[in-house]
Design a protein around this nucleic acid. Structure first.
Lengths: 230, 230
DNA sequence: TTTTGTGAACTAGTTCACAGCT
DNA sequence: AGCTGTGAACTAGTTCACAAAA
């Protein structure tokens, strides 16, 4: 039943490479988005060169990133768009619908729960969690139910939750993460500022809005300084 | 007016180093947060070693990052917390209040406008912009006024806006960015998926939620595969 | 011919280890 | 003694350039 893939497995073992850098996996996601666009535009095949030019990427890097997972291209032709798109979706685990929980039904949590970008690529926002009694039992405008955070363990199992998004105030972040981990969820996207501890088998990815803004502030401060000197 | 800083300028030119990596500036922001905590806890001085241990960082890297901007430490002692904190705030341009505009008064825009984390470190959310007539003239729950996006140029000048946050649906992102650039704003934090074009004197920083989630999905897909084999 | 897949060369970023200051 | 600041060594990531395949 794996016969069809065998020609893509040369001498080295493929499929789950020893260790792919996070930079690479992020780019895979970008490539997928490009292919979605190309597919929607009816493009049949594309070379790494053309892909790079159209989306401001590097051709060699595209080829190298893909090469970690197999030989998806055809020499002299390029990549079949639909084909590569399917492969990327499979590599990224998007061939099944992933179920997401949002921790914290405040402004940010509710906004993320109804964010259309998530649903688009196959993520299902299945539940919101909060501690405030007046919120529990209600749902977001988009219809995501708000549960008591203490029911997380039960609901995580029942709803088969795969990913948790942390959108609670900073002081609650670590205890909430601990509950998420105890609930058996293995992947966390964190929006709260500051470092969080998770066991080694849990993947934590943080988006730190303060760091992002302060990095922009740095740029402005440096830029102003040099224009002041000029 | 720079006299106070002169003892920190050895033989090499300092203050605006040729090119500091974004990784370094992001870490400066992290260090600042650590120092805020230490200061609040009443800690007077800290060595790079102790800082690294307490916050899971690397001591040599802390010293190197700081060394781009001056000699802030005291050999045999470490760094004076209040002192280094003040220096970092100055380096990051946080010694003046930066004024932020949020483009898009949808779920995400409104949530970001009232996000307390921003105000905390000295950012002032001064305005929201949208195209919907029923929103224009109103304000967010936290009291940020919603303007017509076509008034951006005028209001950007009047309100001295420094940074724009892009929280509009993906198809509108590039045109909105063009308006932001035309309004003279030089720093942009983008939440919409996909690449955006800005002129070289404008700093663009993107937070791509889809890429973040798909990267977690990849981890789950790979993890499941190996546990299935075991 | 065209374009992939990939070793080799290069560039960027991190960590080590120690001279030198306090 | 203790700790910074920094060259040197190392590691990771990117780009080049070309042999091999279609």
């Amino acid at each position: 039943m794996v016969a069809l893939n065998l020609e893509n497995l040369p001498n080295k073992r493929r499929q789950t490479p020893e260790q792919v850098s996070e930079l690479t996996t992020n780019r895979l996601s970008v490539y997928l988005r490009c292919l979605n666009e190309l597919d929607a535009a009816g493009v049949q095949t594309i070379s790494s060169q053309a892909l790079a030019e159209q989306f401001q990427l590097n051709a060699a890097q595209i080829r190298k990133d893909l090469a970690y997972f197999g030989e998806f291209g055809v020499r002299g032709v390029g990549y079949y768009v639909k084909d590569l798109r399917r492969h990327l979706r499979q590599i990224l685990g998007l061939d099944r619908r992933l179920r997401v929980a949002i921790m914290g039904a405040g402004n940010l949590g509710l906004a993320l729960a109804d964010y259309p970008g998530f649903r688009q690529e196959g993520f299902e926002i299945a539940a919101l969690f909060d501690t405030a009694n007046e919120k529990i039992g209600h749902e977001s405008r988009g219809g995501v139910p708000i549960h008591d955070i203490n029911d997380l363990k039960r609901i995580a199992r029942r709803e088969r939750l795969d990913i948790a998004v942390i959108a609670v105030p900073a002081p609650h972040a670590q205890p909430v993460v601990d509950q998420v981990v105890a609930g058996g969820i293995k992947a966390i996207l964190n929006f709260s500022p500051g470092a969080l501890k998770v066991p080694p088998d849990v993947k934590l990815k943080s988006v730190d809005l303060t760091v992002s803004l302060e990095s922009l502030s740095f740029y402005l401060a440096q830029g102003d300084a040099s224009s002041g000197a000029a």
